[in-house]
Simulated scan of single mutants.
Amino acid sequence: MPDTSPPFPNTAVADVFASFPEDAHSGLLTFRNLIFATANETSGVGRIEETLKWGQPAYLTPDSKSGTTIRLGVPKSGGFAVYVHCQTTLISEFRSLFPDDFAYDGNRAILFEEGQALPVDPLRLFIKNALTYHLK
C-alpha cells in the first residue's frame, strides 16, 4: 500500500509511534496509512484529527462528528491492536462478518500478531464503518 498518510501532527504522537516495539511498529504504521486513505475515500467523514487518547494514537472526525474514535496500540499479550469504544456495535458486527478471520478482544479490539499481513479490504470496511458510525 502506498504511503498516503500525512506527517505526524505533533511530536507526542510521533514519539509514541517511535516507542512501539519494532515488530508492531510496521503494522501500526500500515494501519495508520489505511485510516487516512479510507477517510479520504469516504464521503461525509471530513478531516481526520490524530491525537493521543489514553497514551495511544487516536483518530477522530472532529468537524463532521461522523465517527467514533479509532485507537492504535500494543496489548499486553503482544502484537498490535485497533481499538474502538466498547459500547459501539462495530466489533460485534465485524465479528459476524469475519468470525474466523481475526482475533478479537471482547467488543473493544481487533488483535493482530507481529508480522501478520493486514487483509486490507476487510479492514477498510471496518475503518469506514468506524468513521461513519454516527451517520447510521
Rank of each mutant, 00 (worst) to 15 (best):
A12N: 13
P21S: 11
D3Y: 03
T11I: 11
R32C: 04
D15M: 09
F8K: 06
T11C: 03
S5L: 10
N10W: 07
P9C: 04
D15I: 05
N10C: 12
F20E: 07
D15P: 04
A18V: 04
V16Q: 11
T4I: 07
G27K: 04
T4R: 14
S26E: 09
A12D: 15
A14M: 09
D23W: 08
F20Q: 09
P7W: 11
S5K: 15
T30S: 11
A24C: 06
S5P: 02
R32A: 03
S26G: 04
A12R: 12
M1P: 09
F17M: 01
E22D: 07
P9Q: 08
P21Q: 11
G27A: 03
F20M: 06
A24F: 07
D23I: 13
D23E: 13
M1A: 15
T4G: 10
V16D: 08
E22G: 05
P6E: 03
F31G: 01
N10H: 08
A24M: 09
S19Y: 02
R32Q: 06
P9I: 05
P7A: 15
D15N: 14
P7K: 08
F17R: 01
S19T: 11
V16F: 07
F8N: 04
T30P: 01
A12E: 15
F8W: 11
V13E: 13
S19F: 04
P9K: 05
M1T: 10
P2V: 02
E22R: 14
T11E: 14
T4V: 08
L29V: 12
L29M: 12
V13L: 11
T30A: 12
R32H: 02
T4D: 08
G27I: 06
P2L: 02
D23H: 12
S26C: 03
T11F: 09
N10G: 09
F8Y: 15
D23M: 10
F20K: 05
L29T: 10
P6K: 14
F20Y: 15
E22C: 03
P6I: 06
L28F: 04
E22H: 09
H25M: 02
P6C: 09
F31K: 01
P6S: 04
S19N: 13
L28Q: 03
F20S: 05
F31P: 01
F31S: 00
S26D: 05
R32K: 06
F17E: 02
P6Q: 05
D3M: 11
L28E: 03
F8L: 05
G27V: 04
F31R: 00
E22Y: 04
H25S: 12
E22M: 05
V16G: 08
E22T: 14
D3L: 14
S5T: 10
F17N: 00
F17A: 02
A24P: 01
P2W: 00
L28M: 13
A14P: 00
A18K: 13
M1G: 14
D3N: 15
P6F: 07
P21G: 03
V13K: 09
F31I: 07
T30L: 10
F31T: 01
P21W: 14
S5F: 09
A24R: 11
